[in-house]
Amino acid sequence: MRLYFKYVSILFKSQLQYRASFWLLSFGQFLVPFTVFAGLYFMFERFGQLQGWTFFEAALCFGIIHMAFSLSECFARGFDAFSGLVRRGEFDRLLVRPRSTVLQVLGSQFEFTRVGRMLQSAIVLGWALYSLPVEWNTAKVTTLILMIVGGVFIFAGIYILMATLCFWTIQGLEIANILTDGGREMAQYPLNIYERWVKILFTYVIPFGCVNYLPLLYILGKQDGNEWFYMLLPLAGILFLLPCLAIWHIGVRHYRSTGS
């Protein structure tokens, strides 16, 4: 972890060398998801509710998944941009270093300008929490934190899977955006508004529902069953990451240098 934070420090200082650019990009990232949230707001302004969900309940769902996405974009960006290392033959250097390839790729790139997106997500999240009549306790606060952390792990796992494909495809595949950007767009709404096959896919295969929709039912007092079950569901994000890491190591063993 000391080496990881060293990576963070070095790249943070390098990105601040051009402060005006850094803050302008951060401001741009603040505005990018604003249009999406505006669409959510005006939809509820027009129809009042969505499958029994009020605006602030959906806003809480929106804030949690966008916070998780922005954190993953910031701290797991190395895997999202991994195809460049393979294409240029630079992954060879990582293999001869006496440290984990996962740690080195993770520390190869950070996008600190995503602080703008994080800020907007935090504002929406805070507004929703302030406006909802939720009786907060230690269990619910812990569940909320686990939901964000679990979401970060799921997005990081998807980045790792897409990076692993680069060992065979060399170039990154745009289809990955179906699971990253598409997953974010899907998970920003309550899962019960979708078709049955979508619910199954994003609960049992890619467990967005386990880190957003289902624990949210517990926080809002809408759950039907044991509270502990709903509280612990965000841990599915960590479980999702484990096979992703295993697949990554399989990909590393099959790596052949491009010779660039």
Results as ranks from 00 to 15, higher is better:
Arg2Asn: 10
Tyr4Glu: 12
Tyr4His: 13
Tyr7Glu: 12
Ser9Tyr: 13
Ile10Lys: 08
Leu11Phe: 01
Leu11Pro: 00
Leu11Ile: 03
Ser14Tyr: 01
Gln15Thr: 03
Trp23Pro: 00
Leu24Ser: 09
Leu25Val: 02
Phe27Tyr: 14
Val32Asp: 04
Thr35Glu: 02
Val36Ala: 15
Phe37Pro: 12
Ala38Arg: 08
Gly39Trp: 11
Tyr41Arg: 10
Tyr41Asp: 01
Tyr41Met: 07
Phe47Trp: 08
Phe47Asp: 09
Gln51Gly: 13
Phe55Thr: 08
Phe56Val: 00
Ala59Trp: 02
Cys61Ser: 10
His66Leu: 03
Ser70Lys: 04
Ser70Asp: 04
Leu71Val: 05
Ala76Leu: 05
Arg87Gly: 09
Arg88Tyr: 14
Glu90Trp: 09
Asp92Thr: 07
Asp92Pro: 09
Asp92Glu: 09
Arg93Lys: 00
Leu95Trp: 05
Pro98Ala: 03
Arg99Met: 14
Ser100Leu: 11
Thr101Leu: 11
Leu106Val: 00
Leu106Phe: 01
Gly107Tyr: 08
Ser108Thr: 00
Gln109Phe: 03
Gln109Asn: 07
Phe110Tyr: 10
Arg114Ile: 04
Arg117Met: 11
Met118Lys: 02
Met118Gln: 06
Leu119Gln: 07
Ser121Lys: 09
Gly126Ser: 15
Trp127Val: 05
Ser131Tyr: 01
Ser131Trp: 02
Ser131Leu: 08
Glu135Asn: 12
Glu135His: 09
Thr143Gln: 01
Gly151Leu: 01
Ile154Asp: 02
Ile158Trp: 07
Leu161Phe: 15
Leu161Ala: 06
Glu174Asp: 09
Leu179Gly: 06
Leu179Asn: 03
Thr180Ile: 15
Asp181Ile: 10
Gly182Ala: 11
Arg184Lys: 11
Glu185Asp: 13
Tyr194Asp: 09
Trp197His: 12
Trp197Cys: 08
Lys199Ser: 07
Lys199Thr: 12
Thr203Ser: 14
Phe208Ala: 03
Gly209Arg: 05
Asn212Met: 04
Leu217Lys: 12
Tyr218Leu: 15
Ile219Lys: 03
Ile219Cys: 01
Ile219Thr: 03
Gly225Phe: 10
Asn226Cys: 10
Glu227His: 04
Trp228Val: 04
Phe229Asp: 01
Pro234Gly: 07
Ala236Leu: 15
Phe240Asp: 09
Pro243Asn: 02
His249Gln: 15
Ile250Met: 06
Arg253Phe: 07
Ser257Glu: 10
Thr258Asp: 05
Gly259Arg: 02
Gly259Ile: 06
Ser260His: 00
